[in-house]
Computed example of a mutant assay.
Amino acid sequence: MITITESANHRIKEMMANESGNQLFLRLGVQGGGCTGLSYGMGFDSERKEDDEAFETDGLQVVVDADSAPLLQGVTIDYKQNMMGGGFTIDNPNAIATCGCGQSFRTATNAGAPSKDC
């Protein structure tokens, strides 16, 4: 299960309201890259794939592709605002290593493919 905090949910809905298009949902995923091997992906989408896993949290529709779902199991997504601005944070209990910025990770069973420019 993925947890999206109230503050993250509110910010995502604000951002979604500024997008054009009907029936948008939040798509979460993981792909190879970043300094540590795997990078998080988060964006809006309107097309679901056959193998997507879907759930709703506090009125927000969320979709995760089947390959990413095990890597995101237990993840908490939060949004924090401070004097420098705001941003999303991802706490992943599956990660055994993360990069300094927190945007890439690796797990015990998946090292991914680190970017060559890191």
Rank of each mutant, 00 (worst) to 15 (best):
S39L: 03
L26S: 04
Y79L: 01
G41E: 11
T76Q: 10
V64F: 12
N22Q: 14
L38W: 06
D78E: 10
T57D: 04
Q73H: 10
F55S: 02
L60A: 03
Q73Y: 03
Q61A: 14
G29Y: 06
Q23C: 10
V30S: 05
L38I: 06
A54E: 14
S46V: 01
D51C: 03
P70S: 04
A69N: 11
C35N: 10
G34F: 00
L60M: 07
D78Q: 01
L72K: 07
P70G: 06
S46M: 13
G43R: 14
G29E: 02
A17H: 12
G21N: 11
T36W: 01
Y40C: 02
S68V: 03
F44M: 09
K80P: 01
V62S: 05
D45K: 15
V75R: 04
E53M: 13
K80V: 10
F55K: 07
G32Q: 09
G21C: 10
E50M: 12
G29D: 05
E53A: 14
A17E: 14
L26A: 03
V62N: 03
A17D: 11
K49C: 09
G34M: 04
A66P: 03
L38Q: 08
G29S: 12
E19W: 04
R27T: 10
E47G: 14
E56G: 02
N22A: 15
Q23G: 15
Q23F: 12
E56R: 05
E19H: 01
G32S: 14
F25M: 14
D51F: 07
E50A: 15
D45N: 15
I77P: 02
T76G: 04
L28F: 05
V63C: 12
K49T: 06
E53R: 15
D67C: 02
G37D: 03
S39I: 01
N22C: 08
E56F: 06
T36N: 05
T76F: 00
A66H: 12
V30E: 00
D52A: 05
S20P: 06
T57C: 08
D65Y: 00
D65G: 10
L72S: 07
S46R: 15
S39F: 02
N18P: 03
G33Q: 00
E19R: 12
D45F: 13
Y40V: 08
T57R: 07
A54T: 13
L24K: 12
Y40I: 05
K80D: 06
L26C: 07
G32V: 04
D45W: 15
